[in-house]
Design a protein around this nucleic acid. Structure first.
Lengths: 233, 233
DNA sequence: AATAAATTGTGTTACATTTACACAATTTAT
DNA sequence: ATAAATTGTGTAAATGTAACACAATTTATT
């Protein structure tokens, strides 16, 4: 066994998890009302300390699972946040992840038992520490990647209609998109399979239900698209 | 003063720094031959432990400055790397940054005194720990961002020609670009100012020297461009 | 049963961007 | 003077994007 490093600073390592959802109309965020110190009673992201027995990704999955009961969810690392005074209790560097979940698939009783509440992104409350910064950066990153790669699907149910997908993109970018051009662009990716079914929850013309071509989705995920060519960055 | 957290795992926090350069022909990487343990004698990135008195960005700047003598350099966080066994000595999470420098402006005596050597990216040696993974991810990220934002200039001298800029992009993407289309695309960004001078180091027609419009560069950095529209991702 | 209102699917044209390629001008060496 | 290498500018065809029209479907209402 090798000798240990002589470095003896105490810097704690935390994980914070930004959880995005979509309810059909608005981009949502799952936040918790803290019933523990510090900052008890205030709103924050779901987080926790990293254990010695887990990788960063494992830690993030654990944190997400503790709140939502979900596994196998789309998640990526945003970045590490390390301002000296970001946590008033003691020096803590947080590695921040964001997850995209199908809001209808999570364990809502579990999340409620952990004091988790969904907010419209636009109406999110003030958060503790640097969590506001994390969340805003996560939205930027979501917009960035969702314009270029087929991320959006991760927020929808397995079967979905093109109008639903469009509403999702409109919520993410907070802008109106032309129905016909959007449809053509999505269809032309070749990622959608027509299920032959129609959306029965409609008071007017029922839209066609599609599902992802899982194989193509996996293989072509990193291809560059141009879903939102007219967004003003 | 608040009570400390009871969490008592020992996880060290390191910084690693990927340093890109460009010599006019090839994309280069500044690596160090370790004359210290662990892995003495092998190649690695420049790194160090994070001090309690500095932010992540400050730590990264310090590490970069110790090797190159440079300040005010383009640098961004890549991500944190935290595999349990990534450092065989003891559990260490590393926050990895990459820097783009003007290779002619750094203190080459200092970097040599630290055992620093420049490699063509294509000819880089095997690196310790997970540094190979970091470096490959950094190239992906550089390609990603340089295709969309005017990053490339950071690797060039203050005054440069369009053919030089093109060679840089060809080195980054390891592909040939059409001279005339590239030129038109770069000019159309409006970011270049004609200095009126010409590149005297040329055996044939001397190319015009440009410099960045610093104001526009700063204000429009996040605009989306399409510098490398035909790269196969 | 006919009609209105809302929504969905498909088509068409003008405009902008990208690609592929041609030619003239500059500079040094022969 | 001429050749060889490189640089600056131009142009037509192909592709992609933006803006808009119209027909089909479904439910509620008359």
């Amino acid at each position: 066994m090798l000798q240990k490093y002589t470095h003896d600073t105490r810097i704690l390592l935390a994980i914070d998890c930004i959880i995005f959802g979509f309810d059909g109309e608005e981009l949502k965020l799952l936040l918790i009302k803290r019933n523990f110190e510090p900052e008890k009673g205030k709103w924050s992201l779901m987080g926790g300390f990293l254990n010695e027995t887990e990788d960063l990704e494992e830690g993030a999955k654990r944190v997400l699972n503790e709140l939502t009961g979900l596994e196998n969810v789309y998640m990526e690392q945003l970045q590490a946040f390390g301002e000296i005074t970001r946590d008033p209790v003691e020096r803590t560097v947080s590695v921040c992840f964001f997850a995209l979940i199908n809001i209808h698939a999570h364990d809502s009783e579990l999340s409620r038992s952990m004091n988790g509440y969904w907010f419209n992104f636009k109406d999110k409350p003030d958060l503790i520490f640097d969590h506001n910064k994390m969340v805003n950066m996560a939205l930027s990153q979501l917009r960035y990647k969702a314009a270029l790669h087929p991320l959006g699907f991760e927020l929808l149910p397995e079967k979905f209609t093109i109008p639903q997908l469009q509403k999702l993109y409109e919520a993410i970018y907070d802008m109106h998109l032309d129905r016909r051009n959007f449809s053509r662009k999505i269809i032309s990716t070749g990622l959608l399979i027509d299920t032959g079914e129609k959306n029965e929850n409609s008071a007017t013309k029922k839209a066609m239900l599609y599902q992802l071509d899982a194989e193509k989705y996996k293989n072509n995920f990193n291809d560059f698209h141009n879903f939102i060519s007219d967004f003003k960055w």
